[in-house]
C-alpha cells in the first residue's frame, strides 16, 4: 500500500448525458458558459462528445468532454519532431518512415474543459489533463499516440498558455486570434 498524503483531495468523475446538471456551473468565460448552458446538450445528444463531470464533496467543480479526432500535424511540426525539437510518439521511427507521410493522426481530443470559477487556480484543470492522459495510456484498446486540444483564443482570452504549461505543443503554426490545435504525446 502506497503512502497517501493527508492533503490529497478526493475527486469523483462521472460520465453523463445530462448537461442540465451544469445549470449552476460557471467558468467565468462568457462564451464557454453560454455554450455549456445552451448548446452542449445537443452536442452530447448527437454523440459528438462524451461529457464528464468532476465533483469534489458532491459539488461539480469541473467538466470536460472527449471525442476522437484525426489530428492534423503540419509538416513543419513533423519536421521538428523528427529533429527532436518537439516530442514525438515512442515508436522506432526512422525519419523517412511511412508513419510521417500521414497528414492526420489518431487522437483523443479534449473538446471542452472548464473549471468552476470558484475552484480555479487549484490545479484541477491540470490534474484532469494528466488523468485523461493516464487513462488513455493504460487503455490497451486505445492505440492513439496523441491527446489533442483546440486551445481557445477569443476576446482577449487565450487558453494557449495554460496548455503550454501542461506540456502541450502546437501542432500547427500559431496565428493571432485563432484557436490553436495542440498536442501531447501519450506515453505508454
Amino acid at each position: 500500500m502506497e503512502k497517501q498524503n493527508l492533503n490529497t483531495r478526493k475527486l469523483t468523475i462521472e460520465k453523463t448525458k445530462d448537461s442540465s446538471l451544469l445549470s449552476d456551473f460557471s467558468c467565468g468565460i462568457e462564451s464557454i458558459d453560454d455554450f455549456i448552458h445552451s448548446e452542449l446538450q445537443s452536442y452530447v445528444d448527437m454523440g459528438n462528445c462524451q461529457l464528464f463531470l468532476v465533483r469534489e464533496n458532491s459539488v461539480i467543480v469541473a467538466m470536460y468532454c472527449l471525442d476522437n479526432l484525426n489530428l492534423y500535424i503540419s509538416e513543419m511540426t513533423k519536421s521538428k519532431m523528427r529533429e527532436g525539437a518537439k516530442p514525438m510518439p515512442q515508436k522506432d521511427l526512422d525519419p523517412d518512415d511511412f508513419y510521417w507521410l500521414k497528414p492526420f493522426f489518431d487522437s483523443v481530443e479534449i473538446t471542452y474543459l472548464a473549471v468552476d470559477k470558484s475552484k480555479q487556480h487549484n490545479h484541477i484543470g491540470s490534474f484532469i489533463i494528466e488523468y485523461i492522459l493516464k487513462e488513455i495510456a493504460a487503455d490497451n484498446n486505445n492505440i492513439c499516440d496523441f491527446v489533442a486540444v483546440r486551445a481557445l483564443k477569443c476576446n482577449g482570452y487565450s487558453a494557449i498558455p495554460f496548455y503550454k504549461k501542461c506540456g502541450f505543443y502546437a501542432a500547427e503554426e500559431e496565428q493571432a486570434e485563432r484557436n490553436l490545435f495542440m498536442y501531447r504525446v501519450v506515453i505508454r
Binding site: T8, L11, E14, H123, F127, E130
Partner: peptide, 18 residues
Amino acid sequence: KTMTRSAKILEEFVVVKE
C-alpha cells in the same frame, strides 16, 4: 519540467470513478 509537474499534479488528487 513538464513531466515533473505532471507527476506532482497527479499526487494532489485521488479519483474515485462512479
